[in-house]
Design a protein around this nucleic acid. Sequence first.
DNA 1: TCCTTAGTTCAAAAGTCATTGAACAATTGG
DNA 2: CCAATTGTTCAATGACTTTTGAACTAAGGA
Lengths: 118, 118
Amino acid sequence: MTLPHPTPDQISLPIVLAVLGDPTRLAIVRYLASKEGVPLNCSKFLDLASKTNLSYHLAKLREAGVTRAEVVGTSRLITLRRDDLDQRFPGLLDSVIAAAGTDPGLPAVGVSEADVPA
Amino acid sequence: MTLPHPTPDQISLPIVLAVLGDPTRLAIVRYLASKEGVPLNCSKFLDLASKTNLSYHLAKLREAGVTRAEVVGTSRLITLRRDDLDQRFPGLLDSVIAAAGTDPGLPAVGVSEADVPA
DNA sequence: TCCTTAGTTCAAAAGTCATTGAACAATTGG
DNA sequence: CCAATTGTTCAATGACTTTTGAACTAAGGA
């Protein structure tokens, strides 16, 4: 079973902006960006929202074309669609992520025990 | 009478993104950017929405810190807060405006009779 | 002063969005 | 097979957003 994703040319700027305008989703994207290249499953975001609510926000991000979700067993591995976003809207993702890093109103991007080597 | 504007450090990234995520407001910002430096009054945007609705959207833009509104007589002269936005979120406004220009789902930025020399 | 122009405010209607708990499906390990 | 894990779907709810028309204010010109 594969999940529906928009093709690159179906990605719409207002929708991407609106989707990134929600603090929970912006935090998800920041976390993905901080671990770029590493596919993360949903449980990595459980400190940001409840499981049900996460399902909702991750679907929004996927449907907007911001993230990609691959089904592997009972997990969904989530990645940023950086390649597609950069091609479609050059510089946008980078400036959003950089801006989030300097906005004192936003929490620091999550550092969990998984970041700390054993 | 002066209208309330957030100070630069009060400008919040999620709010700016959410505000730009509305197609009408994005169109207003694109139009302002296409005439940068020229203060525009509200009537310049009447092809985008009704007068009442425009008042609502322009207030949202102003309260988010995206635009500045100066009261001059019965007019409000609207400008982009490019300086403040660029300092707070470098590159963001430019990439949004550039992205809007390449999104085929968005209309071309308005060209009115004021653009055509007599 | 009277009228026009520019824009706001208000209340209502309609729509969309975020959040929740309960129930469900699918895969994996014992 | 049984149970645990991972995540979705559903319906409900509350909250916020967008849009509208009618009424309003404030300034400027005749």
